[in-house]
């Protein structure tokens, strides 16, 4: 009796084992493959959510904002306590601030990257500097705003001005430019430098004629991307450069300005006419998006073109 039971159980086990061993050969029925299908679908969905979210945000702003955009909107001053009129001073303000940030950050950033990548000897100091630069790239932008307020606005007495805002934005993108440029310089193969030096070129000639041209796509892309970031940032200019409203054009680096991102924030949150100015808000948002994404697109196109050139 006992033996027969044991025998039966053994046979059952054998059957089951046979069944499960065969399952993978029938792809749709296999539990392992079903698991794979479910998992892959989930991963695909998370990718789709990202695409969907970006599309929804962009479409929403474009559809609502396109009606507000016309020549007058871009070329006029705000009127009637900012409930009517255009956003010309904001566009100009953002333009000045971004140009200022480039003047501050680009030469300094690229020079630092060249020093770190080409001249400095790898050691504790360079490693510490690199760690510091990397960490500062992750420091919140509002903290840069605080710093700009304390140093440029209060200590240097620049006041709330284009100068203070440009310096703050410049410092904000400085670590990003250093990091991107250094990466680009380090990715130039070492053999290029050796070949140039072997031909009798000096170190500077090698850097200027060989390393920089090869690193240019990377440096340019990184710089342009960080310029896009500077144009869209709000928190650092809130205390250092931007004001609600100015009625005249900025006439010196020490005058305060209006700026696109800050204008959106102000219209959407402060004041008594929030509902009335909705079209203006959508319009301003659309202009800002077009500007920032345009800069990014430029970077991507430039990168591809220079890459092709380098290959050809």
């Amino acid at each position: 009796m006992q033996d027969r039971k044991k025998m039966a159980r053994w046979q059952d086990g054998k059957m089951a084992r046979k069944f499960f061993a065969l399952l993978p050969h029938y792809p749709l029925a296999s539990i392992r493959n079903i698991k794979q299908i479910i998992a892959h679908t989930l991963m695909r969905i998370s990718g789709l959510i990202l695409i969907g979210a970006l599309l929804i945000i962009l479409l929403f702003i474009v559809v609502r904002g396109i009606g507000a955009i016309n020549w007058a909107f871009i070329s006029q001053f705000p009127r009637n306590e900012m409930t009517k009129g255009g956003i010309l001073p904001c566009i100009l303000g953002t333009f000045y601030l971004t140009i200022g940030a480039i003047i501050v950050a680009l030469p300094l950033g690229i020079a630092t990257a060249i020093y770190l990548a080409e001249y400095a000897r790898e050691g504790r100091l360079v490693r510490a500097i690199r760690l510091g630069v990397n960490n500062l790239a992750g420091v919140p932008s509002v903290v840069f705003g605080l710093f700009g307020l304390s140093l440029f606005v209060v200590t240097f007495k620049f006041g709330v001005s284009i100068l203070a805002g440009s310096l703050t934005l410049g410092l904000l993108i400085l670590p990003v430019i250093i990091r991107a440029s250094e990466e680009a310089l380090l990715s130039v193969p070492y053999s290029y430098r050796e070949a140039s030096l072997a031909l009798g070129a000096t170190k500077w000639q090698t850097i200027y004629k060989i390393v920089l041209p090869n690193a240019l796509p990377g440096i340019l892309t990184g710089s342009i991307l960080s310029i896009g970031r500077a144009a869209g940032e709000t928190a650092p200019i809130m205390f250092t450069a931007a004001v609600f409203m100015t009625l005249k054009m900025p006439n010196s680096p020490l005058s305060p300005v209006m700026a696109l991102p800050y204008h959106i924030y102000v219209l959407a949150t402060a004041g008594t006419h929030i509902a009335e100015t909705r079209p203006l808000q959508y319009g301003t948002a659309l202009v800002l998006i077009a500007l920032v994404l345009g800069i990014n697109l430029l970077a991507i196109i430039l990168r591809n073109r220079l890459r092709r050139k380098a290959r050809g």
Binding site: L50, I51, L54, I57, I61, E233, V292, N296
Partner: peptide, 15 residues
């Protein structure tokens, strides 16, 4: 798409 998401100004997302 992911690069553009990273580039989107935060004030737009807040809006």
């Amino acid at each position: 798409v992911i690069e553009l998401f990273a580039a989107l100004p935060s004030v737009i997302i807040g809006f």
